[in-house]
């Protein structure tokens, strides 16, 4: 009883002592601290300003349409001047999901290969090349999509897909070349570098003891790899969501290959569709009246909100896994 009081007293003393010694001094250390904090907080300020401006810009649209904006399925700037973003939201989410379906297995393979199978020497070269892909500007992916990928897919892939699986509705219908599937493929190519780099990092922090234990139990290399994946699984989920975040925000490449058709649901994977970022890039320059501009701002607000939530989620998961795995490794 007494001892505990003593301790608390002592603590209190320590605190006041700490306070009384605290004084503002102009020295290099304090200036550096201040400048550093200023730079760090500028990011927050920027984000805050961005959200503020977007809300201010889209206020007219929020007032006019309210929740109907998110649930509406009509985008008519010419006659009725009604704007609804549901088809855009669906288009964004579905193309991103297709991109993930394609990119995740490939990225998983790249990550595993780099951490488990490929000798270090080649591993460096491959991971360098993969990261180089991330540096290619998206408009170049778009141009490549229009002039190389679309004719190739239309003539050599989609037509065969249709003859093989044409009885399934999603593979029926006219083939234009551009469309939902093409958009998904281009997006997949763009997010593979990001996702695979995170996965490689995750797998390489899995403790060697895990692998040694598996091998000691007589496991094959493949079984060992499976353990590695399951060890880092929540991190893998985070990496996937990180890729999703990137896919959702991507603009130019998708705009150039998706076909830009405003409809609630496409008739097939080959049909054209639209995404949130694409409609902003397309229509903002020639938006001729206030409500129109405001509606596009509103789309931007929705998009920002979706990407923020997804990115925060993925970061949390990745951090948690890395900490968990590293903590275990120390033990």
């Amino acid at each position: 009883m007494e001892s505990s009081r003593k301790i608390s007293l002592f603590n209190h003393k320590l605190n006041t002592k700490h306070f009384s010694h605290f004084k503002w001094q102009i020295n290099g250390d304090n200036i550096f601290k201040l400048v550093g904090a200023l730079f760090a907080s500028s990011i927050l300020l920027l984000l805050g300003l961005m959200i503020y401006e977007l809300i201010k810009g889209s206020w007219l649209s929020i007032q006019t349409f309210g929740l109907d904006f998110i649930l509406g399925t009509k985008w008519d700037p010419a006659i009725s001047r009604v704007f609804g973003a549901l088809p855009l939201i669906l288009g964004t989410v579905v193309t991103s999901a297709i991109a993930l379906l394609i990119a995740v297995p490939i990225s998983l393979g790249i990550g595993l290969a780099l951490s488990e199978y490929v000798p270090k020497k080649f591993g460096f070269a491959i991971s360098f090349l993969v990261e180089l892909l991330a540096a290619v500007p998206s408009v170049i992916y778009g141009l490549w999509g229009i002039f190389v990928l679309i004719p190739f897919l239309r003539d050599h892939v989609y037509s065969h897909l249709q003859t093989l699986f044409g009885f399934i509705p999603i593979f029926s219908g006219p083939i234009y070349g551009g469309g939902v599937l093409t958009g998904g493929i281009v997006l997949a190519i763009m997010i593979i570098p990001t996702v695979s780099a995170v996965m490689r990092d995750l797998f390489s922090v899995v403790p060697t003891s895990q692998r040694e234990a598996m091998i000691a139990l007589g496991a094959t290399k493949w079984e060992t790899a499976k353990t590695v994946i399951s060890y880092a699984r929540s991190g893998v989920i985070g990496a996937i969501i990180l890729g999703l975040g990137r896919a959702i925000g991507e603009t130019m490449a998708v705009t150039m290959v998706i076909g830009n058709k405003f409809q609630v649901w496409p008739s097939s994977l080959f049909d054209a569709w639209y995404t949130m970022s694409a409609i902003i890039a397309n229509e903002l320059l020639e938006a001729t009246y206030d409500l129109y501009v405001s509606a596009l701002m509103n789309v931007a607000l929705v998009l920002l909100f979706v990407t923020l939530v997804i990115n925060i989620l993925s970061r949390l998961i990745v951090w948690r896994t890395l900490r968990l795995v590293r903590g275990m490794a120390k033990e």
């Binding site: 705009t255 058709k261 397309n282």
Partner: peptide, 19 residues
């Protein structure tokens, strides 16, 4: 005139969009 109207962008009944 009644269903689509005139404008710098309109609600297209059919077709693909190119930028």
């Amino acid at each position: 005139k009644e269903t689509v109207g005139r404008g710098t962008s309109v609600n297209w009944p059919v077709g693909l969009g190119g930028k």
